[in-house]
Design a protein around this nucleic acid. Structure first.
Length: 545
RNA sequence: GCCCUCGUAGUUCAAUGGAUAGAACAAGUGCCUCCUAAGCAUUAGAUGCAGGUUCGAUUCCUGCCGAGGGUACCA
């Protein structure tokens, strides 16, 4: 692995530094952007220049000379370039030797072991079942699922969890909206609650209740709420299924009222003098924990705010003893979680293993105008419609190729137009091309079984492809450390570009049997990496397009 | 007002504090007797403004301008 060479160079550099009595620095050793600077490059001399009061170039040359006297067998050249970088060129044979490793590791290539025998909980989507999932929820769903995949690639056992509020105001209004439609269907005047849900799907639920239960239902019966929740949840689960997202656990806030966790939690905060009454409401004294303002915990209406069950829920997750707890929230929740964390810490819980991922909103454009999405006003674009229009791979890739921090624009009018040009096809096409080559080779009875000689791979484009292939584990790890899926999307984009270039200048199936076998090996290895990357991103690896 | 995120090419987005800021779409020009042209090659085009830290800033800090989100009883 690349990491071994890196470590051996770092050790050599450190030996030289101590031999010269140079101070320790937190220097880098990374692949430079331009291949002419070699395969690994260090800034150590630049960092030492000030302390040593010498020019970085002089220092770099001195260190490079010392390093050359103790040559690592995998290093073919060490050079110094302005303004003072030390560049290492790795033997091509080293890269060539990696093909066999990739072929042998196959679907395991790129996996890490950081999460071995560890557990993680990823909470995402968590939309209340008051309406269909929207395009906005799509970003959350795909981000959460992909982050889960990334953790699984590091060995974590991941629980994908969906948390929803079914005891609060929103669900009450949903039930009232359905009830209003039910009695409207029976000929009464429409009596929508204030802030009622306007969507047509409410009427369908009411009609369904009418068909099943008849017209004798009384005002205020539970059936409206129960049926509405169940209907919406089935719809949501179906939308998620369309994206191939499956949850291990659904948790609702009612649980924590019923099992007494919320009472316990409130009492403990009260004991710590963090709860007080004011203006008919019950307050959490967040200000005494360093927050800017206190928060309402129980409204004057008697209903708790979402913070209360949310905090009890997070406490429950902590008690379930995960090594890592991740929440995926939209930017509108950015202000809420610090209070939850503060309350948990006040109760003596360690929260260092809780990571909150905040993603920015998707701005939808229709006819060049921004569309303000509102489930309540039924002004939204459903995730299902989008998937129908462009397909799962395009939707997943679209949301993953951008950083969660970017406020991205999504032009609905261009969505299907752009779907033909979506970059995901560029990646998948590389995979399909390889599959085609392999099937051609099989027809011609090329066999890899009797081995191949990697030294035939001498073309610039072969090495260019190969050198990037071996960096796959590195990028999988970067994506894990940042919890940023787009690192992998970017990698696959560049890998595909290098493959397509290779494809254009190197024929795999030729008259030269030995060369062909070697090239067949490298494209099979490339196919493995593409497929593994697609696997993490949750997109398909088509054999033909 | 205050807090969070963002501002990069005509457009949508990339870029662990590094070397000549990358793609895609849109625009221009080439390449299919040859494993799929959903491709390759090639031209043009960008870091909001003003300071600061640093050998080096798209990246870190301050101010301003602009966008999105939040802001004590929606979640």
């Amino acid at each position: 692995m690349m990491i071994e060479i890196k470590n051996s160079i770092i050790k050599s550099v450190n030996d030289v530094l101590s031999a010269l009595s140079y101070p320790e620095k937190d220097y880098t050793l990374t692949p430079p952007k331009k291949s002419k600077f070699g395969d690994l490059s260090s800034n150590i001399a630049l960092l030492l220049a000030k302390d040593l009061k010498r020019s970085p170039m002089d220092i770099a040359k001195l260190i490079a000379d010392k390093l050359k006297s103790d040559f690592n067998e995998n290093i073919s050249n060490i050079s110094v370039t302005n303004p003072g970088f030390i560049n290492f060129k790795i033997n091509d044979d080293y890269f060539r030797s990696q093909i066999k490793l990739i072929l042998n590791s196959s679907s395991q290539y790129g996996k890490g072991n950081i999460g071995n025998s560890k557990t993680a909980n990823v909470e995402f989507v968590s939309a209340n079942p008051t309406g269909p999932l929207t395009v906005g929820h799509g970003r959350n769903a795909i981000l959460g699922d992909t982050v889960s995949n990334i953790l699984e690639w590091q060995g974590y056992e991941v629980t994908r969890e969906y948390y929803f509020n079914n005891a609060g105001r929103q669900m009450r209004i949903l039930a009232e909206s359905v009830e209003a439609r039910y009695f409207e269907l029976l000929g009464e005047d429409l009596n929508m609650p204030q802030d009622g849900y306007q969507g047509d799907y409410i009427i369908k639920i009411a009609q369904n209740i009418l068909d099943v239960e008849g017209k004798e239902l009384e005002h205020g019966t539970d059936i409206f709420k129960v049926t509405a929740e169940e209907t919406m949840f089935n719809k949501i689960k179906n939308s998620l299924k369309n994206l191939e997202i499956y949850f291990d656990q659904f948790t609702n806030e009612k649980t924590f009222y019923e099992n007494g966790d919320i009472d316990t939690f409130m009492n403990e905060l009260r004991d710590k003098d963090l709860i007080y009454e004011k203006e008919n409401a019950t307050w959490f004294k967040a200000s005494s924990l360093g927050k800017t303002q206190d928060k309402v915990y129980i409204k004057s209406s008697g209903e708790p705010t979402y913070r209360v069950p949310d905090t009890a829920y997070h406490r429950d997750k902590i008690k379930r003893d995960y090594d890592l707890i991740i929440d995926v929230f939209g930017a509108d929740h950015a202000d809420a979680y610090p209070d939850v964390i503060a309350a948990l810490e006040a109760l003596g819980h360690n929260t260092n293993h809780i990571k909150i991922l905040i993603y920015q909103f998707v701005t939808l454009l229709r006819d060049g105008q921004k569309v303000k999405m509102s489930t309540r006003k039924a002004d939204f674009v459903s995730l299902d419609d989008l998937i129908d229009q462009v397909g799962i791979d395009v939707v997943r890739y679209f949301f993953i190729m951008r950083s969660m921090n970017s406020h991205l624009d999504f032009d609905l009018d261009l969505a299907s137009d752009q779907s033909d040009k979506n970059p995901v096809y560029y990646l998948q096409y590389a995979h399909a091309r390889i599959c085609n080559i392999i099937s051609r080779a099989n027809d011609l009875e090329f066999a890899l079984d009797d081995g191949f000689d990697p030294s035939y791979l001498r073309h610039d484009e072969e090495l260019n492809l190969l050198k990037y292939m071996v960096r796959f584990p590195e990028f999988v790890n970067i994506a894990y450390e940042n919890l940023e899926p787009q690192n992998i999307a970017n990698y696959l984009q560049e890998l595909s570009a290098r493959f397509h270039k290779f494809y254009n200048s190197c024929r795999v199936i030729t008259d030269n049997m030995e060369l062909s076998k070697s090239r067949l090996a490298i494209v099979k290895a490339a196919k493995i990496i593409l497929a593994n990357g697609f696997n993490i991103l949750g997109i398909s690896a088509p054999e033909r397009m």
